[in-house]
Design a protein around this nucleic acid. Structure first.
Lengths: 148, 148
DNA sequence: GCATAATGTTAAAATATATTAATATCATCA
DNA sequence: TGATGATATTAATATATTTTAACATTATGC
């Protein structure tokens, strides 16, 4: 497996590009549809320069792309399913968050927003494939697994 | 959505914990089964201290857990499906890697290793749910999406 | 038991990367 | 051209990573 290292490195870079609070919010926002920098800036409450830097990084990592229209630049996800993919990781963190009802319901909200088939509120582009499989029916076996 | 920030921050932390070449290799390795530090050290070709520190970080983020036996410490994935989840992101980077046949086949190898139902070679713990959906049949619509 | 080797963990220091905020530059359109 | 919006650059600060070394624990041989 000669290029396994390369693949792992690429994956690590992608994960690194996404491992930022603001950038995840941008992902969430862009999952709803195209947005210009100004809109993202308002939504996130950070400077436009910072938004631009985040977008630049996401562009570098081929997560987003843009479309120019006059002086407006609209950003969008290259593959909107990356958003679903990220959110499908909710299952790996929810046990950390399952403390208050408020947080639990926020997790539900997030899941509905990002993972339900009717996710994009208005004028949705197309029905999306579900990646997340709710529930943990496969929880029977203790993960002792095998030896090498 | 009051705790959305919290959820996004948690997700970002998880992604951050995984966004390292060595740690992804550890994930891959542990997907095969329990491993002691020494084995990981040999496999990755890095210092045992570094392995231990990586494992410590993964432990902090509840990705792995350990079992002690004498002077050996065996690590395993808390939820082996996290490994599949990470590898299902291959689709988001493969267009960057699709250059040589060698790389392409390495991607295939990686996919087979991590995502095929019979993934763990020997004495597999249980049939695993597939998260990755091969192919891109939903590629018809240009992602113009909707406006807010 | 005692010394020694094997296995892991931890801490501290050095290095490398990432983030931020401020500023500068560039492009577009009225 | 002037106003606006977007991007690039920079420098400072903060985080992460790596290395080295010290430490703890368990097994083994005498």
């Amino acid at each position: 497996m000669p290029f396994r290292e390369l693949i792992t490195a690429e994956l690590a870079k992608l994960l690194g590009a996404l491992s930022h609070h603001d950038r995840l919010l941008i992902l969430e926002e862009l999952y709803q549809g195209e947005r210009e920098v100004k809109a993202l800036q308002k939504k996130l409450g950070i400077s436009h320069s910072r938004v631009s830097q985040h977008l630049s990084l996401l562009r570098t990592h081929k997560v987003v792309t843009e479309r120019r229209q006059g002086r407006h630049v609209f950003y969008r996800l290259i593959d909107p399913e990356i958003s679903q993919w990220v959110m499908s990781a909710l299952r790996f963190i929810e046990f950390r968050l399952q403390h208050t009802d408020e947080i639990l319901s926020a997790v539900e909200d997030a899941r509905n927003l990002w993972l339900s088939p009717q996710a994009p509120k208005k004028n949705e582009p197309a029905p999306r494939k579900l990646i997340y499989i709710p529930g943990r029916q496969g929880e029977s076996e203790p993960p002792t697994q095998n030896e090498a």
